[in-house]
Amino acid sequence: MSRGIDYLFKGLEALLVVLLAAMAIMVFGNVVLRYGFNSGILVSEELARYFFVWLTFIGAVVTFRENAHLGVETLVQRFGPRGRLLCMILSDAIIFMCMAAFFWGTWKQYPINASMTSPVIGIRMNWIYGIGFFTSVGIGLMVGLRLVRALAGRITEAELRAFAGERTEAAVVRERAE
């Protein structure tokens, strides 16, 4: 199971690389065409914008799994294990509520986006903004599972250290191998 999830996230990381490379190529190509040949490709402008949206939201899920989001680690590091656990539970509860609100907002916006099409490519806008479902469910599942484990007392010391920003690369490799 864990290995399958690792492969899923490796696939997401590869997708991020592809999206970033395609976005850079499209933007660079349009700059060259615009300033060198006084022309451009409209499709590449629109696709680059949509790739940026997808890159951002998929990247949010990947970085959440790696505990790489911004945090107030200098404060959390000052606490002992109980204080860190309390901070983890509080922040996870807030994140879970935010993901629920994000899912609900995407759900309410979905019919509106489904009725609109992009100006150049002509695809339905729910293909662009529907990525909110992926992000809210992805982060929501991860934080929900961690919250349940924290409330059940099944959070390891290594996870608390990682939450406080004390994790080393060697620890990351060891945790993934387990």
Rank of each mutant, 00 (worst) to 15 (best):
S2A: 15
S2I: 12
G4H: 10
K10Q: 12
G11M: 03
G11R: 02
L12Y: 09
L16D: 00
V17K: 06
V18Q: 01
V18P: 01
M26T: 06
M26A: 08
F28D: 14
V31H: 11
V32G: 05
L33H: 10
G36N: 09
I41K: 10
L42A: 15
L42D: 15
V43N: 15
L47P: 03
A48Q: 00
R49A: 09
Y50D: 09
F51L: 12
W54V: 02
L55Y: 12
L55R: 06
T56S: 13
I58N: 04
R65V: 01
E66N: 15
G71I: 01
L75F: 09
V76A: 03
V76G: 00
F79G: 00
G80R: 02
P81G: 10
R82I: 12
R82D: 12
G83S: 05
C87D: 11
I89Y: 02
S91E: 05
A93F: 08
I95D: 04
I95G: 04
M99I: 01
A100F: 14
A100Y: 08
A101Q: 06
F102W: 07
G105P: 00
T106R: 01
W107N: 07
Q109G: 11
Y110T: 10
Y110S: 09
P111C: 04
N113M: 15
V120I: 13
I121V: 15
G122T: 03
G122C: 06
I123H: 03
I123W: 07
W127M: 09
I128Y: 03
I128S: 05
Y129G: 09
G130N: 06
G130Y: 03
I131R: 00
G132Q: 00
G132F: 00
F133D: 01
V137L: 10
G138H: 00
G140I: 01
G140D: 02
L145M: 15
L147G: 04
R149G: 03
A150C: 04
A152L: 13
A152R: 11
G153F: 02
T156K: 12
T156H: 12
A162D: 08
A162G: 10
F163H: 02
T168G: 08
T168E: 05
A171Q: 15
V172S: 14
R174V: 10
E175K: 10
